[in-house]
Computed example of a mutant assay.
Amino acid sequence: MFRSLTGGELAESTILRVWDRARKAALSEQEYHSVLARRPYDLRHACVSTWLAAGVPSTQVAEWAGHSVAVLHQIYAKVLAGQEDTARDRIGKVLGLDAPSERVHE
């Protein structure tokens, strides 16, 4: 995406140095000293995690992220855990049930 003055790829050390300066400028001192967006990759991870937490189907998230579904599930399994009630509510809605998620699996 970005090129050096000679047209080549930027050195990782250059990217990390600029990233560090950007974090320092954009974050509070407490945030800066935390792990928040410590690496540029952390933004990608947060984005994919947000898509999954929002209920975007794994197949769609995998396509957008350039992963296979298997790799997506392996890396982001903890984001997917705990979504059973939401899934049951969706099933209940499709089935026309008025009751909350507990009814779907009775």
Rank of each mutant, 00 (worst) to 15 (best):
H105R: 15
G55R: 12
H105M: 05
V71P: 00
C47E: 07
A81T: 13
Y76V: 03
L27Q: 04
A26S: 07
E106Y: 08
R103H: 09
T14Y: 10
R88D: 05
E29V: 04
G92S: 08
S13G: 06
T59M: 07
G8Q: 11
P57G: 06
A37H: 03
R21A: 04
H67N: 14
I15D: 01
L16P: 00
S68Q: 04
I75E: 15
T50S: 10
W64I: 11
S101K: 01
D89L: 10
D98H: 11
Q60V: 15
Y32Q: 01
G66I: 07
A99T: 07
A70W: 10
A62N: 09
R44C: 02
E9K: 13
P57D: 12
A26Y: 04
A26R: 06
E102S: 11
K78D: 15
K78W: 12
Q60T: 15
L5M: 10
A70S: 14
R88C: 08
V104A: 08
A26M: 10
R38G: 01
D85Q: 11
V94P: 00
I75S: 03
G55P: 11
A46Y: 05
V69N: 04
E84K: 09
D42T: 02
E106W: 08
R103Q: 11
S101F: 02
A25T: 03
I91V: 15
T59R: 15
G66T: 06
P40K: 03
G82T: 06
T59D: 14
Y32G: 00
V18E: 09
P40H: 03
V94A: 15
R39I: 00
S34P: 02
T14L: 07
E29F: 03
D20A: 04
L43W: 05
T86A: 14
D42I: 01
E12C: 01
G55E: 10
T59I: 11
G7A: 06
E102H: 13
T50C: 06
H67Q: 09
D89E: 14
